[in-house]
Design a protein around this nucleic acid. Structure first.
Length: 283
DNA sequence: CGGAGTGTTAGTCG
DNA sequence: CCGACTAACACTCC
């Protein structure tokens, strides 16, 4: 789930609570998932949070913590009075039961609040990097879809250049950064384009529609605080991981009625991943 | 019980 | 360049 809108939500929620605070300790429970010497961060102040693609970045003095939640990562903020905010994979948790068995890293701040990095499947990671190492880490990523350098001109050239299926291209982080399996399906439905179409077969008009759909869907999803896994009705009062799952129009709606016609939503496999679409609304 | 499927991505091979 | 496949891992569902 943690695609661009989810990570952006994590960033916005977290920065309000942790910027300006110093790190007092880091506990690493899963060694493979933390790269770098964590001791360099002790006593350092958190200056700024930012996001690049699906990666959350936390500036700590001269260093930066990069966090990738991959499939099942989750970040939970627990203040001293135990009010949690969490975004990421919505595994149920009780603030009274943290750390839990999926907790991989615990970052403790000077005011007694804590960040829990939970990750069921252990694909996610935290990397402590400085200077050009950061640039190197992020160098393979294409433009941010909501920033200026992602222009219609750039996008059409990229699409014209490849015969790959359009859904695969949308998820290619080197073409445009931050779109994953959920939003790729949603964006293509919004644009009325069949996910199996070859990218270079799209007309100018279709490319323009797709370009608009990318921005529209991502902005909308951020507005809703991202998507909790569609098959898990996990909503917390003050730790709400997002409400966009109620807005999904095709993702995980196989066999259900299309919102655009009387047909049914279909599911196919592309590159071994599920794609959801309406074969009549998306040509 | 076994096997498939799950939000990601890096890598290899042909 | 590109598609197919695999590997990281843990758990649920059928």
């Amino acid at each position: 789930m943690p695609e661009l809108p989810e990570v952006e939500t994590v960033k916005r929620q977290l920065e309000k609570r942790i910027v300006g605070k110093r790190i007092s300790s880091i506990k690493i429970l899963s060694k493979k998932q933390f790269l770098g010497n964590f001791q360099k961060t002790i006593g350092q102040q958190i200056d700024r949070l930012w996001r690049r693609a699906k990666i959350l970045a936390i500036n700590v003095g001269r260093l930066t913590l990069l966090v990738h939640l991959k499939m099942t990562g989750q970040i939970i903020y627990l203040s001293k009075n135990r009010k949690p905010i969490s975004v990421g994979h919505p595994l149920p948790f009780s603030p009274n039961q943290l750390p839990n068995k999926t907790t991989r890293v615990i970052i403790e701040l000077e005011d007694g609040s804590r960040l829990f990095f939970n990750d069921l499947r252990k694909f996610g990671w935290i990397k402590l990097l400085d200077g050009d190492k950061i640039e190197k880490e992020l160098s393979g990523l294409g433009p941010e879809p909501l920033e200026k350098d992602f222009s219609l001109d750039y996008f059409s050239k990229k699409l014209a250049n490849t015969r790959r299926m359009i859904k695969i291209v949308l998820m290619d982080q080197a073409v445009v950064a931050g779109i994953g399996n959920i939003y790729a399906s949603e964006i293509l439905f919004e644009a009325g384009i069949n996910p199996a179409r070859q990218a270079n077969s799209l007309s100018n008009r279709e490319v323009a529609n797709l370009y608009r759909a990318i921005k529209k869907i991502l902005l909308q999803a951020i507005d809703y605080g991202g998507t909790s896994a569609a098959d898990q009705a996990y909503i917390r009062p003050d730790a709400s991981p997002g409400r966009y799952q109620n807005k999904l129009r095709v993702y995980q709606r196989e066999g259900k009625e299309c919102f655009g016609c009387f047909g049914k939503v279909k599911r196919i496999k592309q590159a071994n991943r599920s794609t959801f679409f309406c074969s009549s609304c998306q040509q």
